[in-house]
Design a protein around this nucleic acid. Structure first.
Length: 292
DNA sequence: TCCCAGGTAGATC
DNA sequence: GATCTACATGGG
């Protein structure tokens, strides 16, 4: 992997096991906008940038090389060897072979904790396009204006301070419905420091999940998503309706077992790679369903 | 009109 | 403990 400056842009070349579209569109992140094929507007850490992929090359438009090194490489998890992870999973589970083949460019992102937590509280009982819409509305209404890219006005995800000032009524006006009081509780715990990424990163998986589920409206699934996508807990295995169906059909002969039983099974089967297994499976959910 | 969506809290048994 | 249901909103 080579990083260098070209005019106003920064380039990463010789990238392996990465596909920008697959990584952004596989349901782990909601704060982006598709501009064209393999071309996206991404918002994170108070920045908005245009990124384009050309085969093994990533172009970060109008971006300093130091930002690519300090922010974006880690954000897209590009400093990790995915060949090893994929080999492990292919050997471990034949079901994942096709999923990994089809979605070999998926990487688990390292998002900002507060934005991942808020996004996944919103995600419950909602479809991905609507989650994206609400996240975007939150940025537009309560984040800061960053600038315009390709004629699109960009707004940062609100900081914890900005989030803590949003009332339940204001959350309801953004069509979050019954999640509004959950969001308020999460924002207050973030603001008070009762919940912080610093504390959670130092906890093991079970303690971390336990801390997170002390927030109203955060159960195992939302906690696991926040842990997996923003706290580096890669053994976390979120079980949503899709993963539940796939696991039940594949390993429990269609029998409606409890989510705890599936979680236990996944822990034994995938171990510390649970999160990766889950994400390849989720990315390929429609193909897996059709194959049955 | 009915069913479902990257679920969870509270009630009930 | 393990199940059952209400919960806002939008889309098929």
């Amino acid at each position: 992997m080579k990083v260098f400056k070209k005019g106003k842009n920064t380039i990463i070349d010789e990238i392996k096991d990465f596909d920008l579209a697959q990584t952004l569109e596989c349901g782990q992140c909601f704060n982006f906008h598709k501009l064209d094929d393999d071309e996206y507007l991404v918002v994170a850490f108070g920045n908005a940038i245009k990124i384009k992929q050309e085969k093994h090359r990533l172009i970060f438009f109008n971006t300093k090389i130091s930002d690519v090194r300090n922010i974006w490489i880690h954000y897209f998890d590009l400093d990790r060897d995915y060949a090893k992870i994929k080999n492990y999973l292919r050997r471990k589970d034949p079901l994942l072979r096709d999923a990994i083949k089809e979605f070999s460019g998926v990487r688990l992102m390292n998002q900002e904790f507060h934005s991942a937590l808020i996004s996944f509280i919103i995600s419950q009982n909602k479809q991905i396009p609507h989650i994206k819409k609400i996240c975007s509305d939150i940025c537009k209404n309560y984040g800061k204006y960053i600038g315009e890219i390709e004629g699109i006005k960009c707004y940062s995800f609100p900081t914890i301070d900005e989030l803590s000032r949003i009332t339940e009524k204001q959350f309801r006006d953004l069509k979050t419905g019954f999640r509004a009081p959950y969001l308020v509780d999460a924002c207050q715990k973030l603001k008070s420091g009762k919940i912080s990424d610093e504390k959670l990163m130092n906890q093991d998986c079970d303690d971390c999940r336990c801390s997170l589920t002390s927030i109203k409206g955060v159960g195992d699934k939302v906690a696991n998503c926040a842990m997996l996508f923003s706290l580096g807990k890669r053994e976390a295995f979120p079980i949503d309706v899709w993963i539940y169906r796939i696991m039940v059909d594949t390993y429990f002969d269609g029998k409606q077992v409890s989510k705890d039983e599936i979680a236990e099974f996944a822990k034994k089967k995938y171990g510390k790679y649970g999160g990766y297994a889950q994400q390849y499976m989720f990315a390929a959910r429609n193909n897996i369903k059709e194959a049955k």
